[in-house]
Nucleic acid binder design. Structure first.
Lengths: 200, 200, 200, 200
DNA sequence: TATTAAGCGAGACGGTACGTCACGTCTTAGG
DNA sequence: CCTAAGACGTGACGTACCGTCTCGCTTAATA
């Protein structure tokens, strides 16, 4: 009468969700924000653009803000940097990867939208906080790896330096409203890697 | 500045505007965003809280985004740093002034709200761009003054370094959703001033 | 009747329909409308309450309106009055049977719901019309039988009088929103039987 | 600063409501239900048809059901019958007035819709009950006037007879789904006036 | 002093998006 | 072919907010 609840591991009875919907919706959000700005990202417009119904969206993301964060993560998610044996090289990899991502069209408004959304209510703030922590972790990881390896000074203030690494590209993007460029990356790599270099 | 005075300063006919309204409205915006988040900052709520009518607000700021930017500017406006004869000292003044401002309650959500608003439409983007440029100018000023004075290396990439100075505190605030602290200021002052110090 | 049996009675291949479903669904409709009003009668709620799936309902009644009509008919169907040899007695039987039915809880809202449903679209109107005709037929039958028998005046306007018989109890129920009572039945029996009595 | 609260008698401060909206909305409801049935009467369709915004509708009628009742009342409101000195004449006036009203196109579906709406929730039931009582009052009035005047038997069951007067035309309309006709009116007038005639 | 232009609070207005809910269909797995 | 479960598209619901407008009134500068 009720049916076995969990068959294999993750699927219950009933029609399974369509993966197509997830992809189409996130793509639609990015496309709309890129083409027409954040104001054009209405739930109805997203639904139409994705060829999907509004309830199908709300089943997955309970509010518009959650959807925005998911869209941002789909484009600007955390990346894992392999151990290159050298902090400076790893730092460059992180920043140049980010540079490429941030220069993609629409990412500026997407990030700004997510930051704005986080200011709306505490529930959104914590969702955004989790996202933010995921993205920041990559920088903390290479710093701690460098300390363990020995090419980063052990008394480095990891928290502060991680902020100094992550901040400039994002700020250039959403604070100065211009795309970050290679010179900015070079400057950050230079300043930071010299400052935290062990032995100096 | 925002708002449209009909005559320059010499008042024309008709009832003059009440200054009380300007102050009350900006205060109401800040109070609401501080207490309840950006979502609580509706034009009606602001009007009620300020004891003011909606038309009185719209006479001064044509859109909600303009009002938000004005509120941000009223709390986080540009500051002018006196010539202290020393770049490092001036840099510290800039950052510690900002630190104090950014640690005020509500400023995080106010800044995030302004950034989010800027993603909405191009008209808002340019208004925000002007505000952003005003705020950034202080950092560029002390850098250029340092170059002229001779204690900053003349080949310094002013644009990139200015971003590296301004970014960390704002990013800590709106990107990491935590208040910036003294350690972050110290780290920035150290890294930047050492890196741009003339002669080395 | 409503619902689409694929074969007449000789069963074809495949799993046969469960009678349990038919009963459970109609009972659920009546229970819901009685307890919580027509607005609570959603197809999902009916399915849950009946312990049945939605497709199982839709296989039997193609629309919600059809289900409502079926539920009404299950409670307020036509009744056949035996020949008692006396119009007045038969009239009393009809009205007192109806009185009992109409005083059952939930029947008011069920009838009102069916009437409202009939206003929605022409397809529903005709389904309701068929139901209505079935229910009205009992009154016409006793009138015509009375004329044939000779205790009802042959020049009686059967149509109009049938309406005057059927109307008051239903109208009391759905028009005045109160349960019909014995006094109303008595009044109708008196007025009508005296007016159509042959010879006078 | 606050303004005098009540100026003449009924108008407070602020922009007054536009009468145009009230009329246009009720007309739109009737037009839609007449042309396309009750299912076409969506709040959006009404708003568009009336050239009015949805909030303007909801300011006046808090739910769709209230709007329906108001629309019904605008077409089928209570009428006051002048004292004609004769119960039978007054009864005929009542019924022929109603006949004319009920034969107007769309009134059938409007009435059925209102009855259906009343089944939805208790709040709507009481709103409908008030409307129903207003409409019924005219019949009770002529009965009581007849008793006072002396041409209606003083032992008449006013409640029951009022139901028998009001019911047939409405039932013909919404129960039998056909327009009431002159023969039905004549039959009701005859039966009722003869039955309640004093002395006789 | 009277006029006039613009300010003011109050609140209704058109428009648009929100997030929810219900209908009726379809897709899965199982009986 | 039936069953339960539940996701799906469609579309209406009622609410909230934005920015405008219409009231009646108040406040100065001007005529």
């Amino acid at each position: 009468m009720v049916g076995k609840r969990v068959r294999d591991e993750g699927r219950g009875p009933g029609r399974p969700r369509e993966e197509r919907v997830d992809r189409a919706v996130l793509d639609a959000v990015v496309a709309l924000v890129t083409e027409s700005g954040l104001a054009a990202v209405t739930m109805d417009a997203v639904a139409v653009r994705a060829g999907v119904s509004k309830p199908a969206i709300y089943r997955r993301w309970p509010t518009k803000q959650d959807l925005l964060i998911a869209a941002a993560e789909s484009r600007v998610g955390p990346l894992s940097v392999p151990d290159l044996g050298d902090f400076r090289a790893e730092l460059r990899v992180v920043l140049e990867s980010r540079l490429e991502v941030y220069r993609a069209p629409g990412v500026d408004r997407l990030m700004a939208g997510v930051i704005g959304a986080a200011a709306e209510a505490d529930a959104v703030r914590s969702a955004y906080g989790a996202y933010s922590a995921r993205v920041m972790s990559e920088t903390r990881n290479i710093l701690e790896r460098g300390i363990a390896r020995g090419d980063v000074r052990p008394d480095t203030d990891v928290r502060a330096v991680a902020t100094m690494v992550a901040a400039p590209l994002v700020f250039r993007l959403v604070g100065e409203m211009e795309p970050p460029d290679q010179r900015l990356v070079d400057t950050v790599v230079d300043l930071v890697s010299r400052a935290v270099a062990a032995r100096g």
